[in-house]
């Protein structure tokens, strides 16, 4: 119940933290494009208690940066139909794919 009351006053932003300590602050609404992050923030998990900070021990900074970029890109284009595809560097492709699978985006 603490989490739900906290949610009322929770900030508009959340922080994603990579395994090597990089932090990415982005809009809660954008981050919730990822169903996994949405669930992390919705339930009474540690993430909510720690002030909306999500640690990803398996995702490094480089990949998480791209993930954050994607979340913003998706949020920005949420109401558009003809959206140019986001560029994904081929060398990051596989790692990013695994992250995407994990985050359910």
């Amino acid at each position: 119940m603490a989490s739900s009351s906290q949610k009322q006053g929770s900030s508009k932003y959340v922080t994603l933290i990579s395994s090597d300590g990089f932090e990415f602050v982005l809009l809660r609404e954008a981050a919730c494009v990822s169903k996994a992050i949405k669930k992390m923030l919705a339930g009474s998990f540690l993430e909510t208690a720690r002030g909306d900070r999500c640690h990803f021990e398996e995702i490094n900074g480089i990949v998480l940066e791209k993930v954050a970029e994607y979340l913003c890109y998706n949020h920005k284009n949420r109401n558009r139909e003809d959206v140019p595809d986001m560029d994904i560097p081929p060398e990051l492709c596989l790692e990013l794919l695994m992250a995407a699978d994990y985050l359910d985006t």
């Binding site: 959206v83 595809d85 995407a100």
Partner: peptide
């Protein structure tokens, strides 16, 4: 609209 990240990755791959 925007494709999901997984689709983007698979297409790049």
């Amino acid at each position: 609209g925007a494709k999901d990240l997984m689709t983007l990755c698979i297409e790049t791959l």
